[in-house]
Design a protein around this nucleic acid. Structure first.
Length: 285
DNA sequence: AATATTTGACCCGG
DNA sequence: CCGGGTCAAATATT
């Protein structure tokens, strides 16, 4: 009832969403086979297959990214420690440049070799709040590269960044390179709400009221709407349809071998995942 | 009004 | 010098 469903790790949500969706499409496909006389409104088997394929690829990509993210965490922290010690130097340099009195744009510290990982997917959406700060045409490539940094770079000093570039059209595939981990909590809470005792509850339970009132809460809001819309598309009534499915499946996850079997048989790159625990991923209270 | 995007200038390393 | 990453003023969006 009053479960903080959406307050899960966004990545967990996306993975489950893709898997549950895939399952639903598969069910549709099954019914399609049972009634081969297609009525004009219904989707084709090809279409469903494509959707199922997409769901699985997205989930796999997501899990890969996740696994890498865990690996990178340490490196990244080391990097930011490193940064602290060198900041004073660059501060001096900045002042020196300023005395030139010219336009200071483009005067920055070039990104050092920081932890990075890549992802190719059909969506640019990854559940984080990004702010575009540049775009460049790249030699010998048809599509421009877009530069993003975390929305909370300034208010929370979050150094996460990414570059996105289309590498293929039809079907569209984005190539994304991520730099650094998010250190922000992506939902920005207005100060007056921070002080209220019920703040935590509001954060956990994104009712449309709470969410809509805040600008930067786009992450969980989108996540929530996306899920809602998609469960409305084909399975008629309940918004919580998907989450019921989710919860149902999580019961099976209690027998932890269930998911392990599914994943290890399907994922060649599973060794990246040493730290991944599904019982944690499905914590429902 | 507050935020986000666009876009060309600027900077740096190779 | 060139290619690519970043900045920030102008502009658009909410």
């Amino acid at each position: 009832m009053e479960k903080p469903l959406v307050h899960q790790n966004p990545r967990k949500i996306r993975v489950m969403k893709e898997l549950v969706e895939g399952k639903r499409f598969a069910t549709q496909l099954q019914t399609l086979f049972q009634q081969p006389i297609a009525d004009h409104g219904s989707v084709s088997a090809d279409e469903l297959l494509l959707k199922i394929w997409r769901s699985f690829s997205e989930a796999i990509t997501e899990l890969n990214t996740w696994g890498l993210a865990f690996q990178i965490e340490e490196v990244d922290q080391a990097d930011s420690e490193d940064r602290k010690s060198k900041d004073s130097t660059s501060e001096l340099k900045k002042k020196k440049d300023k005395q030139g009195g010219k336009d200071r744009r483009g005067c920055y510290k070039r990104r050092k070799t920081s932890a990075s990982w890549m992802r190719e997917s059909a969506t640019v959406e990854d559940g984080c709040a990004w702010r575009k700060y540049g775009q460049k045409n790249i030699l010998n490539s048809k599509y421009p590269r877009c530069y993003f940094r975390c929305t909370h770079k300034h208010d929370q000093d979050c150094r996460a960044a990414k570059q996105v570039q289309i590498i293929q059209e039809n079907p569209i595939i984005y190539h994304t390179t991520y730099f650094g981990q998010h250190t922000c909590n992506s939902v920005k809470i207005p100060k007056h709400e921070m002080e209220s005792p019920s703040f935590e509850v509001k954060q956990l339970l994104p009712s449309s009221d709470t969410i809509d009132s805040s600008h930067d809460s786009t992450v969980n809001k989108e996540e929530y709407q996306e899920i809602k819309v998609q469960s409305d598309v084909s399975s008629s009534s309940m918004d919580s349809n998907l989450w019921q499915d989710f919860a149902h499946d999580s019961i099976m996850a209690d027998h932890s071998s269930y998911f392990e079997r599914v994943i290890s048989s399907d994922m060649e790159d599973f060794d990246k995942f040493s730290d991944f625990h599904f019982d944690e991923a499905i914590e429902f209270s």
